[in-house]
Amino acid sequence: MKPAPFTLHRPATLAQATALLHDLADEDARLIAGGQSLAPMMAFRLARPGHLIDLNGVGELAHLCESGGMIEIGALIRHVDIARRAIPGVTGALLRAVLPHIAHHPIRTRGTFCGSLAHADPASEWCLTAATLDATLVAHSASGRREIAARDYFEGAMATALRADEVLSSVRLPQLPEGARFAFHEFSRRSGDFAIAAALVIFELRDGLIAQARIGIGGAEDRPRRISEAEAVLNGRKPSPELFVEAGAAVAAALCPMEDISTSAAYRRELAATLTERALEEAAR
């Protein structure tokens, strides 16, 4: 389990990084920031990049800031920074609530927020967060900058709309309004493992009625997504255990879950419904 050989590049600026990606387009170049997903893939030789471009010298990607109602997380922001850098508002609180579910501490010290999104594991907590919050993903390439909406970004298991010559330079998350409620629930066989299914729910209460509901499901399908059918069940109604069961059922009905030798689609579907119910109950408390 020793990685295959590669050529190392260490750009100092984003422009250098994108130029390298452009020049090496035909030679399987990969970016590395935290490397907590890439390194195991290279150990198993499932990934054998010919070139590795280390982003850690690109200081301009180490930003974490709020402006214009958006929180922007740069490509070098590690998971632990999410807790250490006081991110304001409800979105900050939400990120801190999700954080402890990501792997374990020694992974969180190295792995990056944007790296999780670039890797796009279907069970990734940050991918679910980005999908549920309708994040905007910012990609840079030698030909310029573009923004990708989360709903267009995830294309399948470990598949995204990022082009081979693009760097996911930052992710922008909307600041949730004061008073917005949220909860995250996931189920995995062991602590710290990737979830078999996960639910992130967010809503506001206006005059005792649910508004602006967001129900995101991760781990169950090949990509995380919002389940509009379940959101429609909730909006305009009074929170109650019965309503949450109804919303869970809507999630179950809308999902088309993955299946593997140890986990059936039916099990994942039921799990997603349960986690939705439980998250809604917690958020309503």
């Binding site: 198993f44 062991r190 602590s191 710290g192 493992d193």
Partner: peptide, 16 residues
């Protein structure tokens, strides 16, 4: 064989 990594062969941790 489908259990050839520690992500697939699940040994209990302290939490379990």
């Amino acid at each position: 064989p489908l259990s050839v990594s520690f992500a697939d062969y699940l040994m209990p941790t302290l939490s379990e």
